[in-house]
């Protein structure tokens, strides 16, 4: 835990907790993600992948939201723990 490890949401493993640091998207998609709670500082948990690998479901602000990799690869954060 000494060096914070920055990863993209799309690369998170099931059970990972990630504290969001940046959203590299613009326009409507960015605003929609903000509204859903994907804001800097928010803690996101990787819940599960769809049977075909994409989209991935995330737990954010007490709700479960699925994102495609186009979006989840543009959200970065600090990996907090490895899933137990």
């Amino acid at each position: 835990m000494s060096i914070p490890k920055i990863i993209k949401l799309v690369n998170g493993e099931k059970g990972n907790l990630i504290r969001i640091t940046s959203l590299n998207l613009d326009g409507v998609m960015r605003r929609r993600l903000l509204d859903l709670g994907f804001v800097a500082g928010a803690i996101v948990e990787v819940i599960r992948k769809s049977p075909l690998g994409d989209p991935i479901a995330f737990r954010v602000s007490q709700t479960t939201i699925a994102l495609r990799k186009e979006e989840s690869s543009r959200i970065e954060g600090v990996l907090m723990t490895d899933g137990e």
Binding site: G27, V28, M29, R32, L33, L36, P55, A57, T63, T64, I65, A66, L67, R68, E70, E71
Partner: peptide, 10 residues
């Protein structure tokens, strides 16, 4: 035409 994707799993 603009496109965006989010899906809530209630």
């Amino acid at each position: 035409v603009p496109t965006h994707y989010t899906l809530e799993l209630p």
